[in-house]
C-alpha cells in the first residue's frame, strides 16, 4: 500500500530507502528529505504544550496531489517515513501506525546484530523483507 519506505539516521543522513518502483528512487529521496524539516518543527514544538501526545508517530508530514508522507521518530532520533499515494483513501491512521511499529521493531532487530556497524546503510535481508511487506500489504 505504501509506495516508499525510508529510514533516516539521527544526524539526518539517509540509511535506507526502498520504493515499489526503483526508477522513482531519486524523486522519493527528494520528497523524504524535504519532509525532514517538518519533523524537526514538530519535534521542537513538543514539550511546550503538554496536551500534545508524545507518541513516536507524528502523523502526516505533508501531502501533495500525488503522495502523502507520514513520519515516525524514535527516542534515539531515528526517523522513519512512509510515502503513500494520496489517491489511496483506504488507509487509516491506525494502519499506518502499525506499519511504523513493524518497521521500528525490524530496525531494533538489525541494530542488535553485532556485525552491524552503527551508522552504516542498512543492507539487511530481514529489514528488506519487512519493508517490502509494508509496501505490498
Amino acid at each position: 500500500m505504501a509506495v516508499c519506505v525510508a529510514v533516516v539516521s539521527h544526524n539526518n543522513s539517509p540509511k535506507y530507502i526502498a520504493c515499489v518502483n526503483p526508477d522513482n528512487e531519486l524523486e522519493f529521496h527528494y520528497k523524504v528529505h524535504t519532509s525532514l524539516d517538518v519533523i524537526e518543527e514538530k519535534l521542537s514544538n513538543t514539550g511546550k504544550s503538554n496536551t500534545e501526545s508524545r507518541e513516536f508517530y507524528l502523523g502526516i508530514l505533508y501531502s501533495t496531489e500525488e503522495h502523502t508522507i507520514y513520519g515516525y521518530v524514535t527516542n534515539t532520533k531515528v526517523k522513519f517515513m512512509i510515502v503513500t499515494e494520496t489517491s489511496n483513501k483506504l488507509l487509516r491512521d491506525n494502519e499506518i501506525r502499525a506499519m511504523f511499529r513493524k518497521l521500528h521493531s525490524a530496525y531494533t532487530h538489525i541494530i542488535c546484530n553485532p556485525f552491524y556497524v552503527p551508522g552504516d546503510d542498512i543492507k539487511s535481508k530481514y529489514f528488506e523483507q519487512m519493508a517490502r511487506s509494508v509496501m505490498v500489504s
Binding site: T46, R54, T74, N75, T76, T108, I111
Partner: peptide, 11 residues
C-alpha cells in the same frame, strides 16, 4: 533501542 521501543517520546 530495545528499552525505549515501548516508551512514549521523551518530553
Amino acid at each position: 533501542f530495545r528499552l525505549t521501543k515501548d516508551w512514549t517520546r521523551f518530553k
